[in-house]
Amino acid sequence: MTSHPTAGADSPKPAFELKAATFTLPVIRLLGIDMDAVADQLGVKVDQAPDFFRNTPVVIDLSGLPPGAGQIEFPLLVGLMRGFGMIPVGIRGGTEEQHAAAEAMELAILGDAFVRRTPPREAASQPDPRPAPRPAASPASAVAEEGVHASQRLVTRPVRSGQRVYAPGGDLSVVAPVSHGAELMADGNIHVYGPLRGRAMAGMKGDISARIFCQDLQAELLSVAGHYRISENIPDEVKGVPVQIFLDGDVLRVEKL
């Protein structure tokens, strides 16, 4: 008998395993339901970074729509996104009606537990005049760029426990502390100018030349292109000092700067 040890005489060799995994996906956050406007503006983004969208699974976020925005023309939107090479996989947020319409288009309804949005804001150090101007997303633009076209992302406020920040397609710079339980992710490099107490994952899409630079290393986990080290395996002499983290073959090195 040469069959798999766990398979009985009459059960076939296992053909698959079921597992859970977490993925980070770009999100298109709709700010209005005018699909013509979405088409125009998305076209511009795709022209800027065509490769980024090719065969990329994308989530449609409805939480930025004004209340009572009405029905979304999902067939149009899905067709539009496919036309640009994206693979619309699901939606997040929105009303029950919108969920039903999305399901009719075979889009999954996703919880908001992952891809936490970190609002694009500036440091609280400036006195903020209230009522405040709306900085990033002007009401005129129909698509907010979250996870879409960002070759560089700058965060100036502390990244708190439970928050996740992702810089798709580029580098992430954080000029503030990163707390225990916070998570930084970038397709490129990660720079932290403050204590790094949470997790940092560079090269999310497999770029083995990505690096992590940080001023004060106290991280829970470091990873480059999937090669990781947990806090326990980080030598004490590189803790609390400026370091860089990079892949040397299969070894994730932590080196003083």
Binding site: T118, R130, R134, R160, S179, A182
Partner: peptide, 27 residues
């Protein structure tokens, strides 16, 4: 202190000000 850190994160992402992209809650 950890719980407070978590709460500060929630304040900056789950408030009406955050949803509307207004100036953040003063902490």
């Amino acid at each position: 202190v950890r719980d407070s850190d978590r709460m500060l994160g929630i304040l900056s992402s789950k408030s009406r000000r955050a949803e509307r992209n207004e100036a953040p809650i003063r902490e």
